[in-house]
């Protein structure tokens, strides 16, 4: 079977279900007399996406930028903290309780403080996304770095290999699938964080669009914004899956 054929074979149930849900939705709104401001029909959402008054591009760009920034920050800081924890027991003892504390805080509750400290802007929203998404990266990095077979470490000791070399040649590649697996969670968390940030304080972005539709009851625009958010979220998630496929093909099917 061709690759396309195999994919069609695998995904047709998804597509059929999706089409069925859309059609039912449209039918329910059209024939069920549901008011547009409560639940807009799929066609109205389509119109809001392409033919409405909203200029999507600046909002889409702002939110995408925030999400990617949040994702990268969470990835870099998360990996760095994970390496620090796995490298030194002293650092682990110092950092872990603090990180657990930060993780238990409901990050949404901090968002208004960000507004006070940093005002409106892209950066605080990025930071919110990073704050929500970094923790799994820290934990998975630290776990992946330490889940090395003791016999392999003995092999390193026999050859008197320095600690950094064991990290570079054995521990870090070993942790890669773990890190990539955490980044899938981070990809979703970055989206949540960016939108939450925009809800609290923003002048632009898809979250901002949703907040403004509340007062105007322009529900189809809110739905259109949701479509854009899920497109960005899915693309980022897909990029991470692709990255995992390219960087750690040996770990395929691990998670």
């Amino acid at each position: 079977m061709t690759k396309f054929g195999a994919m069609a074979n695998r995904y047709w149930p998804t597509l059929v279900l999706f089409a069925f849900l859309l059609a039912s939705w449209q039918a329910a709104v059209t024939f069920g007399n549901i008011r547009e401001y409560l639940l807009p029909a799929p066609l109205s959402v389509w119109n809001a996406l392409w033919h409405g008054d909203t200029a999507w591009w600046p909002h889409l760009w702002t939110t995408t930028f925030e999400i990617i920034g949040a994702f990268l920050m969470a990835a870099v800081v998360g990996v760095a903290l994970g390496v620090a924890i796995a490298w030194s027991p002293v650092l682990a003892n110092a950092l872990v309780p603090f990180l657990v504390f930060v993780n238990t805080l409901p990050k949404v509750a901090i968002a208004p403080l960000f507004l006070i400290w940093m005002g409106y802007g892209i950066f605080p929203n990025m930071l919110m996304g990073a704050l929500i998404g970094f923790f799994p990266v820290v934990i998975n990095t630290a776990v992946g770095l330490s889940q090395v077979e003791p016999d392999m470490l003995d092999l390193g000791r026999v050859f008197n290999a320095p600690k950094w070399k064991i990290f570079v040649k054995i521990r870090i590649p070993n942790a890669l699938p773990y890190i990539l697996s955490a980044l899938k969670i981070t990809a979703t968390a970055a989206v949540v964080g960016a939108i939450v940030g925009e809800f609290v304080a923003s002048q632009r972005g898809l979250g901002y669009v949703i907040v403004t539709t509340q007062s105007s009851m322009n529900t189809s625009v809110a739905f259109a914004a949701l479509v854009w958010i899920s497109v960005v979220g899915l693309l980022l998630y897909g990029a991470v899956v692709l990255l995992a496929h390219l960087w750690a093909p040996w770990a395929e099917g691990v998670d």
């Binding site: 077979e149 016999d151 392999m152 003995d154 092999l155 026999v158 054995i170 590649p173 070993n174 890669l176 750690a248 040996w250 770990a251």
Partner: peptide, 12 residues
């Protein structure tokens, strides 16, 4: 030279 019960080859 050491050989263990598991081959412990690096998967990557």
């Amino acid at each position: 030279g050491m050989v263990f019960q598991a081959p412990i080859l690096l998967k990557w």
